[in-house]
């Protein structure tokens, strides 16, 4: 009996909730309090990260940009696949993205988007990839997760919040609602907090744990 449990524990697809060490390499998110909570101390590489957001404009992309910029070290690329609007290059450049290694792929259908994302992830060219999808079959997501495992990339999938309750093979899932950031699922143990608050800064967003955020005035004075 004990032997069979031992053998179960060595399986790569089985992760323990008490384990603070990530099963995959991670990349620092650039947000200190968030890193402290995430297993391994950052966004997982070689795995799919799913961001479910209630509506566009919550800072869902700014949240990821520090990690995207870092993932482009070592001459690797950043690809956006079927973004809902035109990515605005000056803002990306301001966030440290090298535009020479950035491209946006327009896709007519979600099948094309999935295909392109899968090809890009498998190629090993991309340091990071962001994909926007509406509804997607679990099978398609699983393929994406497998493709993400094959390359050492930060793979981020943006979906509407309505899908947050559905099962998903993504290794890390977070939900953005209003200013609230909630970690829905992760491989391994979460830190003390699973709920955070996003604050706008002149250069993007900063993430604070909900307890600390309670002491801050709700609306920062705008310039």
């Amino acid at each position: 009996m004990a032997a069979s449990i031992e053998s179960l524990l060595t399986r790569p697809d089985l992760w323990r909730a008490g384990d603070r060490h990530a099963t995959t390499p991670v990349i620092a998110s650039g947000h200190r309090e968030l890193d402290a909570a995430l297993p391994g101390g950052g966004w997982p590489l070689q795995a799919l990260t799913e961001v479910c957001h209630a509506r566009p404009g919550l800072g869902e992309l700014s949240l990821m940009l520090p990690a995207f910029a870092r993932a482009m070290d070592d001459k690797r690329w950043l690809l956006f696949v079927s973004a809902p609007h035109l990515p605005y290059a000056p803002a990306l450049a301001d966030a440290g993205i090298d535009l020479e290694r950035f491209a946006h792929l327009r896709c007519a259908t979600s099948e094309q988007a999935l295909w392109a994302a899968e090809q890009a992830l498998r190629s090993g060219v991309c340091g990071a990839l962001a994909l926007w999808l509406g509804h997607a079959e679990t099978n398609a997501l699983r393929r994406l997760q497998l493709a993400a495992e094959s390359g050492r990339s930060l793979a981020v999938l943006y979906r509407p919040l309505a899908h947050a309750d559905q099962a998903s093979p993504a290794a890390l899932r977070i939900a953005l609602e209003g200013e609230q950031l909630r970690i829905v699922k992760c491989r391994g143990a979460l830190g003390d907090v699973a709920r955070f608050v996003l604050r706008r800064t002149p250069h993007g967003v900063s993430v604070h744990s909900e307890l600390a955020a309670a002491r801050v005035v709700p609306f920062a004075r705008s310039r």
Partner: peptide, 11 residues
């Protein structure tokens, strides 16, 4: 994806 499907930018 077709011609023009890949968008690249310079400032």
């Amino acid at each position: 994806l077709g011609d023009g499907a890949i968008e690249r930018f310079v400032l």
